[in-house]
Amino acid sequence: MIEQFIDSLPEKVRCTDSFENGTKHRKKDKALSFPYIEHNQLYKKYIAIDVDMPASAFLWEKHGLPPPTFIVVNPKNSHCHYLWQLRKPVIYTEGGRRKPQQFYENVDCSLTRSLPGADPAYVGKFIKNPLSAFWKTIRHNAEYDLEDFQEYIDTTPIRKRQNLVWDALGRNNTLFNNLRFWAYPTVKKYLNNHAGFISAVEEQAFEINSQFISRSDKGSLLHKEVLSTATSVSSYTWRNRFGDFRRKGIMQLPEDMPQKQKESLGAHYSHKVRSQSLKERIIQAATELKAQGTPITQKSVSIRAECSIDSVKRNWNEVGKQFNLYA
């Protein structure tokens, strides 16, 4: 089971020893020494549940659930992460089928409902590393098909939470608007902790995304879409953390300036800001792709930066120079 767990991870794994210090992609062999790691979000081999209750290592048995493959126990408070290993991973790439994804999400929700103390806001992204000496780990030689869980739990989907302000334009807009309005006041708590703020925004983004499971026929957004939105929101909010997040009067034009001249100057300024902002997003997207070990292509950058292929093409020479794509 240990070998399969290691094999399920990507070559570069996000990890940390404390979320206050932020997270970082590291090579797999180094990442496995950290207490917290991100298990594969594109090929989900494990169902992860966070049980925030003391003495919860054998709670699964009391409630008639199948034995988790790994029970990772915090020795300080005896809270646990349960990890059930699947025989076949559920694919969450663009080519992944919605039906098995929905089945996976239903099982995840049902397991959470079945366990007292299980955190309904936990999105199963970062887990306590079962190989870390920081925790105590109980192992069972068990793996499952999703259908196996139907013998133990009711996998009928239900609504987990109802606190989203839904945008009629869809999930991406709903995520963006709910996340940014959450981030604006929250950044005041992290004025001297940039890494901590980034981690907090990402966690909130994935928590919002988890609510799409029961509120949209299309289910949750892809991992990369959520991460891209989180990056955009955290970057903008951090740059403006000492302001009031409004652009009114940003050019500080004289009050007696004719309105037509103000409009002309404003249009020129807005175009300049938008162009620069788009270029920054494209460069940032390429930087993140490189850090993840993902090939930097015009298509991958456009998806990551959430912009059109044509916009990427207009800035492609700059990307090529900065990342030596043609060396």
Rank of each mutant, 00 (worst) to 15 (best):
M1F: 13
M1Y: 08
E3L: 06
D7I: 06
S8D: 05
L9V: 04
P10F: 01
K12T: 11
T16I: 06
D17F: 09
D17H: 09
N21H: 04
K28N: 02
K28L: 00
D29I: 02
D29M: 04
K30T: 11
A31N: 02
A31M: 05
F34G: 00
I37K: 00
I37W: 02
N40H: 13
K45E: 10
K45I: 01
I47H: 01
A48Q: 01
A48K: 02
D50E: 13
D50C: 03
D50L: 05
D52R: 01
M53D: 05
A55F: 14
L59C: 06
W60H: 12
W60C: 09
W60I: 07
K62S: 09
P68M: 12
T69R: 08
T69A: 11
V72K: 03
N74T: 03
P75L: 11
P75E: 12
N77T: 12
Y82S: 03
L83P: 01
K88N: 13
I91M: 08
Y92W: 15
Y92T: 07
Y92Q: 02
T93W: 06
T93M: 08
T93Y: 03
G95A: 10
G95H: 07
G95C: 08
Q101N: 07
Y104L: 07
C109M: 07
S114T: 05
G117M: 10
D119M: 10
A121G: 13
Y122M: 12
V123F: 14
I127T: 02
N129S: 06
P130Y: 00
L131T: 03
L131H: 02
S132R: 00
A133I: 06
W135C: 01
K136I: 04
T137S: 01
N141M: 06
D145A: 05
L146F: 11
E147I: 13
F149S: 05
E151D: 12
E151I: 00
I153D: 07
P157M: 07
N163A: 11
L164D: 08
L164W: 10
A168C: 08
N172M: 12
T174C: 12
L175E: 05
F176G: 05
L179F: 13
R180A: 00
A183H: 03
A183V: 07
P185V: 08
V187I: 14
Y190S: 09
F197E: 02
S199V: 09
E202T: 07
E203Y: 04
A205I: 10
I208Q: 05
I208Y: 04
N209I: 06
I213S: 03
S216Y: 10
D217F: 11
L227K: 06
A230I: 04
S234W: 04
R239N: 11
R241P: 01
R247W: 13
P254C: 13
M257D: 10
Q259Y: 01
K260C: 07
K262C: 14
S264K: 14
Y269K: 11
Y269D: 09
S270W: 11
R274Q: 12
S277M: 09
S277D: 12
L278K: 12
K279C: 10
R281D: 14
I283M: 15
A285L: 04
E288T: 09
K290G: 10
A291R: 14
Q292C: 15
S300D: 03
A305W: 01
S308V: 14
S311Q: 14
V312A: 04
R314G: 12
W316V: 10
N324P: 00
